[in-house]
Design a protein around this nucleic acid. Structure first.
Lengths: 236, 236
DNA sequence: CCAGATTTATAACGATCGGTAAAAATTCTT
DNA sequence: AAGAATTTTTACCGATCGTTATAAATCTGG
């Protein structure tokens, strides 16, 4: 688990005692949710503490009771986003059918875009603006993770299981397609004449991406209907 | 040419007489270039006129001699970006070999990401932040253009020339993949341990995207060397 | 060379930015 | 219920935001 280094990216404030959600919900969580939305839509520089406070329904200086400054708050959410991002890539376990592995990964990525669009937008904004805050994380955590998965894909290719391909670009393309359904959501809703993407839209997205990836790798859609007993997970 | 409506999106200032670049370069172009960079990296809200002026090597209020306000400047660049974006989609002429059409389109899109990364980032930023400025343009100009191309792809599918696919999502995916090589450039350079993407990287990107799209549509990479020679569309 | 128009630079405005100080309100402990 | 500790609000700060006013510089045509 190499990406546990990311603890170094954040210094929290109060390791003090008791937890208690007395009247309403936890304020810190409300701030984080509001900040996720605002940072996700406008980036670090475009987001304002006033807008975050308004979205969280609190007074503006109240933010500074829970977070040192704007950057601390931004890092807190970025960390959450990177955490989930890295965990998803790590969860691409290389055991089992190739088709199943890829399908499962693509589905998970699209589901993430549907369930956490603001986190995806936040990440996209950070990358577009130059990855000033998470460049180190990408270099030290994401890249080794990627290289591991790239090696797996290349092993598939050299064994003849899939058509040869640039494994790095394959991942870039999968990320681009799956994350687009969060980042470019507003464009898609306009072009589809909808107010929001429905479940059916995400299912169609999954099917299309799966078709492109499996087709591009020369794989059939049906993952070889389990010739033997289900209990045997092939080789490790 | 439906997208000529976009003239309504911009009101320029001086339709007055003579053009002359007397001492240095044209100031307005320098402002536009600087603004393209700054808006592209930080979005409308995150960009500051001071930074644009500094990048253009002029005094801050000098901007307001050529542009009414920040929004006017932003729209000017957005218009340029949308112009190029729409022209590219329009240039996907539906004549000729299907493979050739798709390959040419993908190549053009990747070339655009390489040659105008800031414009691509600008567009991405605008979409991510909700498409507040260009929502109308997308609705009135881009969408009809897209629907036309979608009809073409669907005709291909119903004629059996390609595998059935959601044509709309196919375009979303092609845009996502090709534009990612501009928008997510910083992530890619970090993960590739490079300072910038080289020509070879863009060529690999093209090949990968082409492989995914053609493979996903059940098309061979080689576009039928002669009009009537190839009759057995068997893959690899 | 000079008046008039055009282009650039300087000064400064109100609004808003991120952030602080300190008081008010609330909760916890006793 | 009283006092201490914690949570939230009010008031406000200097810096920077977008923008305007206006003066200096430059370029024009005669």
């Amino acid at each position: 688990m190499p990406y546990d280094d990311l603890k170094a990216f954040r210094i929290r404030k109060s390791p003090k005692g008791g937890r208690k959600p007395p009247p309403g919900l936890d304020i810190e969580a409300k701030i984080l949710d509001a900040a996720e939305f605002v940072f996700g839509h406008f980036g670090f520089r475009g987001a304002t503490t006033a807008l975050i406070a308004k979205k969280a329904a609190i007074a503006k200086p109240h933010i500074y009771y829970y977070f040192e400054d704007k950057e601390d708050l931004y890092r807190a959410i970025l960390e959450r986003a990177m955490h989930m991002w890295a965990r998803e890539l790590e969860a691409l376990d290389t055991a089992g059918d190739i088709q199943t592995i890829l399908i499962r990964y693509i589905h998970k990525k699209v589901d993430f875009s549907r369930d956490h669009p603001d986190l995806s937008r936040l990440y996209a904004n950070e990358i577009i603006s130059g990855a000033a805050f998470i460049g180190g994380f990408i270099e030290k955590v994401s890249t080794p993770l990627l290289r591991d998965k790239v090696a797996t894909v290349e092993a598939w290719a050299s064994s003849g299981a899939i058509r040869p391909i640039s494994a790095v670009d394959l991942f870039f393309c999968i990320w681009a397609m799956t994350q687009a359904y969060a980042d470019f959501m507003s464009q898609m809703t306009i072009m589809k004449h909808k107010r929001a993407l429905q479940d059916a839209d995400y299912e169609t997205a999954k099917a299309t991406i799966v078709q492109l990836v499996l087709g591009g790798l020369g794989l059939a859609e049906t993952p070889a209907p389990q010739p033997r007993a289900a209990r045997k997970p092939r080789r490790t």
